[in-house]
Amino acid sequence: MPEIESLSDISRLISDIQHKKFTRSYDIALRTEELLQELISKGHWKSAKELMNLVKTRIQLVRENLPQEATAPNIMRHILKVIREEYQSASKKKDEGQSLHELVTSTPSNVLDYSDSLINLRSSILDHLTEYKVELESSSDNIAAQALEHIHTNEIILTVGKSNTVEKFLKRAAKDRIFNVIVVEGAPLYAGHTMAASLAKSNIQTTVIADSAVFAMMSRVNKVIIGTHTVLANGGLRAASGIHAVALAAKHYSVPVMVLSHMYKFCPIYVGSHNHEAFNVCASPANVIPYAFGPILDKIEVNNPVYDYVPPELVTLFISHQGGNSPSYVYRLLSELYHQDDYDI
């Protein structure tokens, strides 16, 4: 069956993610973009509608197999929007999406169905994607470039675990400013240790603390700067476990919490409640209690959740390559990134 065969590209991506071949979301983002670029240039499609269906089946497949994965579907959603935009500019029809204005002004004649086959559509989409790829590649540099606006001399910055974006951000600031960084170690994976070692190599004053010491240290911290796994549609976070506690401590001492996030981490999906099964995953408990503990393992239950839900009230600012935005503005960023009909596929 050709239908199944043609999905081999996305199946490979899914299995690579499952087998942790890509650990950084940036790698997943780039891989997804390349995958779609290939699909668009070599795939069999005649109209924008057919192409959009090809992309949508891929999104569905990823969401079925990896319900926690946000980066790959987000990249594909954005590309859907690119396709829509290019189709609209080529066919000179406009689709304003759902808005009050559209509700009032729409006429029966301008309903778009994306089914016309247009000659230059393929090349114009590919041009647009090339631009998009450059945007992806420069995203973390653009975020790092804003470091000096947020980090000032002699400040104490707290961060949790390891995030490549945060690392780059702090190192950029360290070129011009002298400041202290407190790294929360992030048990049970202790990614904070690697982070601290890397920061220290760049001559940043670095202190590592245990997760339990967060509250004690928070009173002297000027800013909390963290990365995140996903930004949810309400402005809340799905971030590494332990970050909710850090954010609450920061709230208690009125310390601003800044979240560095690439645009592809903004996810248009709401999580009804954070206890939802699809929200969290549990990693192997071996890191919490080693198997060597022996017989006691029969008598206890060990959980090792990977994520925390952090409500939007605890976040002060999101920093993306476009600049800073408050959580209440996330809905607007989403409407610029994706088409409303593609939010829930």
Binding site: Q98, L103, A233, Y329, V330, R332, Q340
Partner: peptide, 10 residues
């Protein structure tokens, strides 16, 4: 709303 799920600021 019929325009989607909105935060009050939208």
């Amino acid at each position: 709303t019929d325009l989607g799920i909105l935060t009050p600021s939208a």
